[in-house]
């Protein structure tokens, strides 16, 4: 189908994009890679009056080092995130997770910023950003502000972004000495995660010194499995002990019943996947 008519503006800077959004009110939308927005417009599920395209803003694209952090521009594609040598070295979990998204064509267009801003509960990158404790840089009419991953996703398809704000980049603290792994459960290619579990583990010889575990599609936003993280701290780095700890993986979650799976099944699945993800991240 053909989208409802709209005006189009190719912004040449972040300031210009912010000004255009501020002038147009809530009927305006940012266009990033278009891999979520254009399907929605084609199905006429949304009819914005203005699209502000970020594709012509060079500063939004690419990965750079800034002291103890990597900074990834919002318009960096999933393909670029998954192949970036800097991301692979300092935040390999982001590269691994970006590589699981959709298919090659979607990864060539879809962007990190678009995925985080869209905040689909089944999307992979929100859980990735939560696991690496990314900080989000937002630009609005009153300048820039930084929001931690834990405060960015608010609810289903809802984030801390105001109608006149643009996600500019995410700052990712460089981490070394952590193992990481993503278990994404889906039954068909291109398919979104029925459940996904991302794990990062730092070992202290035979034990897990600390662990971070985040969950895809186990609630309205990506979730941090806090109870599991606590159970894993100090846990022996062997399969049996890890699996036992993972019995609490569904604590604090609120998964949906939908066509692909029941909530009960998701609560079971998350324990199994957590066991695999944590074991792989711990190298056992």
């Amino acid at each position: 189908m053909i989208p409802v008519a709209f005006d189009y503006l190719r912004a040449s800077s972040v300031d210009e994009a912010v000004a255009a959004l501020a002038g147009a009110g809530e009927d305006a939308k940012i266009l990033a890679g278009g891999q979520s927005l254009l399907p929605v417009l084609r199905l006429r599920l949304s009819a914005p009056s203005l699209l502000v395209d970020l594709g012509g803003v060079p500063e939004l694209r690419g990965v750079r080092e800034e002291g103890d952090s990597l900074v990834i521009g919002a318009m960096t594609t999933h393909d670029e995130v998954s192949t970036s040598p800097l991301v692979r070295q300092f935040a390999p979990l982001l590269a691994t997770m970006a590589a699981t998204i959709g298919d090659r064509q979607v990864r060539h267009r879809g962007t990190l910023g678009g995925s985080l801003s869209h905040a689909d509960p089944a999307a992979d990158m929100p859980a990735a950003a939560a696991a690496v404790e990314a900080r989000y840089v937002l630009a609005g009419p009153n300048g820039r502000r930084v929001v931690p991953a834990s405060d960015f996703a608010v609810d289903l398809f809802t984030t801390a972004l105001g109608d006149d704000e643009v996600l500019v980049e995410v700052q990712v603290p460089k981490l070394e000495g952590w193992g990481s792994h993503y278990e994404k459960f889906h039954r068909m290619v291109q398919a979104w995660a029925i459940v996904g579990v991302a794990a990062m583990v730092r070992r202290d010889d035979g034990a897990i010194a600390s662990a971070r575990v985040t969950l895809t599609n186990m609630g309205p936003t990506a979730l941090r499995a806090t109870a599991l993280e606590q159970a894993l701290a100090g846990c022996a780095a062997d399969r049996a002990a890890i699996e036992q700890a993972c019995a609490v993986a569904a604590e604090g979650t609120s998964p949906r019943d939908d066509l692909t799976a029941s909530a009960e099944y998701r609560r079971h699945l998350v324990q199994v996947l957590a066991g695999r993800a944590v074991a792989a991240a711990a190298g056992v």
Binding site: L38, P39, R42, Q105
Partner: peptide, 23 residues
């Protein structure tokens, strides 16, 4: 699917139903 690139680089595969002509 088509390739979308520049004069110097044939670029990469994209779904042309999910790209605007203006883009």
């Amino acid at each position: 699917t088509v390739l979308l690139g520049t004069a110097d680089d044939p670029g990469h595969s994209v779904k042309s139903c999910s790209v605007l002509a203006v883009q």
